[in-house]
Amino acid sequence: MTGQVTAHLTWSPALGRPDLLAPATTAALHAWAAGDPRVAEQVMVAEIDPALADTAALSAAYALPLDVSANCVVVAGRRGGEERVAACVVLATTRADVNNAVRRLLDVRKATFLATDRAVEESAMEYGGITPIGLPAPWRVLVDSRVPLAGDVIVGSGVRHSKIELPGELLAEMPGVEVVDALALG
C-alpha cells in the first residue's frame, strides 16, 4: 500500500535514493533495515520542490490530504542542569502539546521548541525536512498514538527536496520510538 497515498508524486524505495535523504537518515534506514526487512520494501521517498517542503504548501501543491502528513518538531527542557531533548511526531492536523504532555514526558518544568539553528545543526538535517529517522541518539523520539492509526504517513527526509512515506505502524516500531497517547492537541 505504501506509495498509494499520493499519486501526484513519484515514489521509490528510500534505500535506493540516498541522494534524496540526509546522510543521517540514510544511515539510520540502513541500520533499521538490517533488523527489519520491511524497511527496504515499505519506506519510500519522493522528490519535491524544496520551496514546497512546509506541510500546508506541500499538501496544496501535490493534493496530499493533511491527515496523512506528520510533522516532526524538536522540543527541549532542563531539569537539574541537564538538558532533555525530544523529537515529537504528530499529524499535521494536530499540534504537539508542548506545555503539558511533552513537558511531563521530559520531566522538566518548562519545555520549548529547540531553536531552529540548533535543531538543524544538531540533527544534521535541513530546516523543514527534519525527520524522526536518523536523529541524534540521546534525543527521545515521541510519536503521537494517532500517527500509526493514519495508515501510510508522510514525514520529512532530512532534506527539503524530498519526503518519506511509510506505514505509520512501521514508524511506531522504529528502534527508539515511544508511542504516546495524547501527545498532540486537536
Rank of each mutant, 00 (worst) to 15 (best):
A182F: 02
V75I: 12
L106C: 12
A111H: 00
L15E: 15
V5H: 12
G158K: 13
R140D: 09
R103I: 11
D54R: 13
V45T: 08
P13K: 14
G168H: 02
I130D: 09
V159F: 12
E47V: 00
N99L: 02
D107H: 00
L185Q: 13
L166G: 01
L21W: 08
T116K: 05
V39G: 03
A56Q: 14
R104T: 15
G80N: 00
P13W: 14
M125Y: 13
E165G: 04
S59N: 14
T131F: 13
P13F: 13
P50Q: 05
L29W: 02
L106K: 14
S157P: 08
L64P: 05
R84I: 08
T6E: 03
A184C: 12
A24T: 15
V39W: 02
E178C: 10
A63I: 01
R103W: 06
A31N: 05
A150C: 08
S123V: 14
V141W: 03
R160Y: 13
E82K: 15
T94V: 01
A182P: 00
G128R: 09
A27G: 10
W139P: 13
L170W: 12
L171I: 11
G35M: 03
N100P: 00
A57N: 07
C72M: 01
L58V: 09
E122H: 10
M1C: 10
G80C: 00
I164P: 11
L105I: 09
G156C: 11
T112F: 06
D97C: 06
A76K: 08
G16M: 05
R38H: 07
G176V: 12
P50F: 01
E83N: 03
A70H: 14
A24D: 06
W32V: 02
A182H: 07
V68I: 10
V153N: 02
L64N: 05
T131A: 11
A137C: 04
T55L: 10
A96I: 03
P132Q: 13
T94D: 15
V89W: 11
D152W: 09
V141F: 06
V153H: 02
W11E: 06
V43F: 01
V74D: 01
A24R: 15
G134T: 14
G158L: 13
D67L: 01
V155Q: 13
D181Q: 15
G35N: 04
V143N: 15
R38Y: 05
R118T: 04
L20G: 05
R160E: 14
D97V: 03
L52W: 04
V179T: 06
P23W: 09
T2A: 08
M44L: 15
E165T: 03
P148D: 06
A56P: 04
R79K: 11
S157I: 14
F113N: 08
G134N: 09
L170Q: 11
L91N: 04
G3K: 00
P37N: 12
R118Q: 06
V90S: 13
L64V: 10
T93P: 08
E122Q: 14
